[in-house]
C-alpha cells in the first residue's frame, strides 16, 4: 500500500508535528497561566486590583482570539522571522502556534480560576497569606483540574492548527497531507494522515481526562 519511502515521510512528518505542538503548548502554558492569573486577580475587587490594565489585557486577548489562525500565521511572518530567523520549517510554525494558543488557553484557565470559591481566598487571608501565597497555594492548586482540562482542549486544537501550519511549509503531517494527498491525489496518504491525527487527538484527550479524574478524586 505504501512505499517504504512514504512510510519514512509519514514518520518524519509525525516527528515534526510532535515538537511543533508540544513546544508551542509549553509556551502557551508558561505564558497563558500568568496571563490568566493576571486577568482574574487584576479585575475589580481582585487581590491585585488594577481595573484599567485588566481591561487592556482583556481587549488584547480578545483581539488575538478574534483573528483566525490561518490569518495570524501570515500576519505574524515578520515577527516569526525576527524571532527564529526563518519563515519555514517546524520552528517557524511554533511562533504563530504559540501566539494563537496562549490567549486561547489563558481564557480557559481564567474560567477555572474564577470558579475558585472566594471563601477560600478569604480563609487564606485570615491565616496570614500574602497575595502571592494566595496565587501559589489557593488559586492555582484549586483550579488545577480545570486548567489541565483546558490544556487538553488547547493541545487538541493545536494539533489541528499545526496541520494548517504545515500547509504553509512548516512540515509535519498537514504538509504531507497537502502535498501528497491533495496535490497528487494519493488518497491513501490522506487517510493515513487522518488516522494518525485522530489517534493523536484521542491519546491526548485520554491522557488529559485521566489526569483530571485523578485530581478530582481527592
Amino acid at each position: 500500500m505504501f512505499t517504504t519511502q512514504m512510510i519514512d515521510r509519514l514518520w518524519q512528518a509525525f516527528f515534526d508535528t510532535l515538537p511543533m505542538v508540544s513546544v508551542s503548548a509549553g509556551i502557551a502554558v508558561l505564558a497563558g497561566i500568568p496571563l490568566a492569573v493576571f486577568l482574574v486577580t487584576s479585575g475589580p475587587g481582585g487581590i491585585f486590583a488594577a481595573p484599567r490594565l485588566n481591561r487592556v489585557a482583556g481587549t488584547l486577548v480578545n483581539g488575538f482570539r478574534a483573528v483566525p489562525f490561518i490569518v495570524l500565521l501570515v500576519a505574524l511572518i515578520p515577527f516569526t522571522r525576527l524571532v527564529t530567523g526563518t519563515t519555514i520549517g517546524v520552528w517557524a510554525a511554533i511562533v504563530p502556534l504559540a501566539v494563537s494558543a496562549t490567549p486561547f488557553f489563558a481564557r480557559i484557565a481564567e474560567v477555572s480560576l474564577r470558579e475558585v470559591d472566594p471563601g477560600l481566598i478569604e480563609a487564606a487571608q485570615s491565616i496570614g497569606c500574602r497575595r502571592w501565597h494566595i496565587i501559589r497555594h489557593v488559586l492555582l492548586p484549586e483550579a488545577l483540574p480545570g486548567i489541565v482540562g483546558g490544556l487538553t482542549i488547547t493541545v487538541v486544537t493545536m494539533i489541528g492548527a499545526s496541520a494548517m501550519a504545515g500547509a504553509v511549509g512548516a512540515g509535519g503531517l498537514g504538509d504531507v497531507a497537502i502535498r501528497y494527498g491533495y496535490q497528487r491525489f494519493d488518497t491513501n496518504v490522506m487517510l493515513a494522515v487522518i488516522v494518525i491525527l485522530v489517534a493523536l487527538v484521542c491519546l491526548v484527550q485520554f491522557a488529559g481526562d485521566t489526569v483530571v479524574r485523578r485530581l478530582r478524586a481527592r
Binding site: G119, E122, A123, S126, G128, P141
Partner: peptide
C-alpha cells in the same frame, strides 16, 4: 492575622 484565627460556616478548606 497570624494573631487572629478564624473559622467559617463552610469550613473553607483547600480541597487540593
Amino acid at each position: 492575622r497570624r494573631r487572629i484565627g478564624m473559622i467559617f460556616q463552610h469550613f473553607n478548606l483547600l480541597s487540593a
